[in-house]
Design a protein around this nucleic acid. Structure first.
Length: 212
DNA sequence: TCGCGGATAGACT
DNA sequence: GTCTATCCGCGAG
């Protein structure tokens, strides 16, 4: 499957949901850092009170959302960076925020980048994930996914036991309708999901184990 | 295990 | 000056 058909022509919420279980990787020039996406949020355009593009807001800061699906929208907030992929056609400013991954390769480097943090603290939040990758600038903002060191494997995905939809994290509560809307998708039971309770963690991390 | 507040930096009014 | 699509450490229970 190519980037265009994946990120365009179906609802952004469906795209966010479909990203769960897929591998996100970053080539830092030395090695590949990667992990399985376990949490993603959908931001659905100018009508979405919680989106950066709400009410048509557009500037150099959020230009990426207005580009065609498959374009990276990387921005900073406080001292952290965030990884979004634009969805839908050009000038339809929707996108998905990848919030958490379960690390697969390059874990030792991620620990260094995270200043010694280990385990779930490595990547269980959007700012933490980018810090684990070693991202310190908006260099790849506005680049196409396929023309960047980032990659998402659109041809394979892990079998997930159960996906849950929840309200998004940290969004404006000014409009209860959008604040409560279930546009955050998680792999139920995975320990790398942000703010998951210990009692909700499952031994299989929410994935169906395939044999051989 | 929880809730709270401080740190911290860029964008916008 | 105000507001974040956050993170972390601290103190109470």
């Amino acid at each position: 499957m190519d980037t265009n058909s994946f990120f365009i022509n179906r609802p952004t919420a469906e795209i966010a949901r479909d990203l769960l279980g897929r591998t996100l990787s970053f080539d830092n020039g030395q090695e590949i850092l990667s992990g399985t996406i376990v949490e993603a949020e959908a931001y659905v355009g100018v009508k979405d009170r919680a989106a950066h593009s709400y009410n048509g807001r557009r500037s150099q800061a959020n230009e990426g959302l207005y580009r065609a699906g498959g374009t990276l929208y990387i921005y900073s907030q406080r001292q952290y960076f965030f990884f979004d992929v634009a969805t839908q056609k050009e000038d339809e400013p929707q996108g998905v925020l990848i919030r958490a991954i379960e690390p697969e390769t390059g874990i030792e480097t991620m620990i260094k980048n995270r200043h010694g943090k280990i385990g779930t603290l490595l990547t269980n939040g959007p700012g933490k994930m980018m810090q684990a990758f070693g991202i310190t600038s908006r260099k790849w903002d506005l680049h196409r996914l396929e023309d960047s060191p980032f990659a998402i494997d659109l041809n394979n995905k892990k079998d997930i036991e159960k996906i849950i939809a929840l309200p998004r994290v940290g969004v404006s509560q000014a409009d209860p309708y959008w604040a409560k809307k279930n546009l955050r998708f998680i792999v139920s039971g995975n320990p790398y999901v942000s703010d998951i309770k210990k009692k909700d963690i499952k031994e299989n991390h929410g994935f169906i184990l395939t044999n051989n």
